[in-house]
Design a binder for these strands. Sequence first.
DNA 1: AATCTACTCAACCGCCTCACC
DNA 2: AGGTGAGGCGGTTGAGTAGAT
Length: 293
Amino acid sequence: MGRAPCCDKANVKKGPWSPEEDSKLREYIEKYGTGGNWIALPQKAGLKRCGKSCRLRWLNYLRPNIKHGEFSDEEDRVICSLFASIGSRWSIIAAQLPGRTDNDIKNYWNTKLKKKLMAMAPQSHRNPPPFHSPHHTPPLPSHSPPSMYKDSGGSFSYYPQNRSFTGFEPSSQNPSSLLSNNSFSVATNSLLFQTNQEGLFSPMQYYHPVKDNYLVFGSESSCSSNSDGSCSLIGHGREIKQEYMGFHGFMSSNGYGDQNQKVMLGNGDNGVEIMNQWVEKAKWEYWRNPIRL
DNA sequence: AATCTACTCAACCGCCTCACC
DNA sequence: AGGTGAGGCGGTTGAGTAGAT
């Protein structure tokens, strides 16, 4: 039983594409387009390839205006900032970098950028600083927040599939009042980010991958390294129920975090406060630099 | 020169979502 | 409402290559 395969695996070629295959695919698409059906395309184009493989080859390599080669500092900055905000949503990140593909960015992050950021980290991962530090405050734009913040009635969408903001009433306050005394930091995957003086996320230091995809708020207190490289912070934390303030709904429905991501409060007393700041910051980040698809 | 190791990145796999029937 | 198939996505793999020994 199980799902029917998308193509006849026995009769499709796999592995690297030859120049002949590339030109066949390119010529076909330039002439007829994809026809909205990748599965049927290879047969029409005379290719012994799976439709998915054709799609990938076109999107990642043959498509016009694909940018290859070194990433610029500006691209690095955008990737870091977005990764800190939304995690490994490579397609969304790629949408902000014209000419770059999600695969490209993913590879770049996994092989180079992550290491680069770890090297920039000022301290050993064995002794991470508190998650929340009062030293940096994002600069605040002089203009007012957009009306959508005040008037959205709890519903706006800026991620695909019309995922909408639900379960968290947008604040009618100017975000500045919520952020004026606070910086913001977040641990994601194996890096700890913090807003810098420009209000952008920047890598603060390497942080051990957190088991079970937890997102942690609050002071790290007795965080210590275990022999397997994990961090014992989770063991001291308190898991927040998903319905807490609608927070999890906000996170997952808007791409901040994901459906399986659990939320933890750190050991300190400031976890809830910081989590709330995180939510406000996420909204603020969106307002400053909306992701439009 | 030969071998080993680390790294890169194109491509694949499998899951999820959505549109259509 | 439920089933099905295609598209899209993120995670992972592995062949090729560069650098070290």
